[in-house]
């Protein structure tokens, strides 16, 4: 199962904001199909880490190497802008906490899903629409909503639409920033289950930032716990949650019910 080459190799990564540490000394490997949760309280540097990993901002130190489909393992710092942006809209996805930041709120659900296809050169309206309809069903949105704008959708539907919009190109790596944080508890379970199924079915590697350890328990193979911009503990999700070693992880785990 474990292939020889990790999909993503992160080494001694650091990001600073002036004198303030965003994150530093972050190293890990991510394998294809692996779901990695980054947990920590707000201000722990987990969102900074996510944005740096996705190369939305350049790291100040360290390297990120990704196993590109064509070129193989490549240091992202050496990748031309055009290729990086292509990566963002094809082989990678990025799901934002607030769906309004990740969707075009005033264009139809179909166009939201179809955008990546059109960006890679699909020029057949009927085909694009067919794929969009199919994805709408996969994320459990009634296909009659295909031509409706997400501004008329509930929070849960919007977040599921954002998933469809990202997964339509079948990316191998998807970054997610607190995707459940804005959802009502009553719709979280559906969203998480859907995410769990799709990620397993498509063998997508995921780096998911969350402060909710129950989300990590349900989705993640592995867990990274961050504090003050550094990794304090990392390991198998259930081992880390049931037998945490680091004082901070113990505190974090003991402060929540039923994680």
């Amino acid at each position: 199962m474990k292939p020889a080459i990790p999909l993503l190799q992160v080494k001694d990564l650091a990001k600073f904001y002036g004198n303030r540490v965003g994150c530093e000394q972050v190293s890990f490997n991510l394998y294809p199909g692996e779901v990695l949760c980054v947990a920590g309280e707000s201000g722990s540097g987990k969102s900074t880490l996510l944005n740096t990993l996705a190369f939305h901002q350049r790291p100040d130190a360290g390297s990120i190497r990704y196993d590109l489909r064509e070129e193989g393992v490549t240091d992202l710092a050496t990748l031309p802008d055009a290729r990086l942006r292509e990566l963002w809209r094809t082989d990678w996805g990025f799901v934002r906490q607030n769906p309004a930041d990740g969707l075009r709120m005033r264009v139809s659900a179909g166009a939201n899903i179809g955008e990546r296809l059109m960006a890679v050169g699909d020029r057949h309206y009927g085909d694009i629409r067919g794929v969009a309809k199919d994805w709408l069903q996969r994320v459990e949105i009634d296909e009659t909503r295909l031509d409706d704008a997400p501004s008329s959708f509930s929070g849960g539907m919007r977040q599921r639409l954002q998933i469809a919009r990202n997964l339509v190109t079948e990316p191998r790596l998807v970054f997610m920033d607190e995707p459940t944080a804005g959802l009502d508890v009553s719709v979280q379970a559906r969203f998480l289950d859907l995410l769990r199924r799709l990620v397993a079915e498509l063998r997508i590697a995921v780096i998911l930032v969350t402060h909710d350890l129950a989300v990590a328990r349900l989705l993640a193979h592995r867990l990274i716990v961050m504090r003050h911009g550094r990794i304090v503990e990392t390991g198998l999700t259930d081992q880390l949650l049931d037998d945490p070693q680091h004082p901070y992880t113990q505190l974090l785990v003991s402060s929540v019910l039923n994680a």
Partner: peptide
């Protein structure tokens, strides 16, 4: 990067 321009035309047809 003009793929998004087709989003507008897609909306028209939809």
């Amino acid at each position: 990067e003009y793929g998004v321009m087709h989003v507008k035309l897609y909306e028209d047809i939809a």
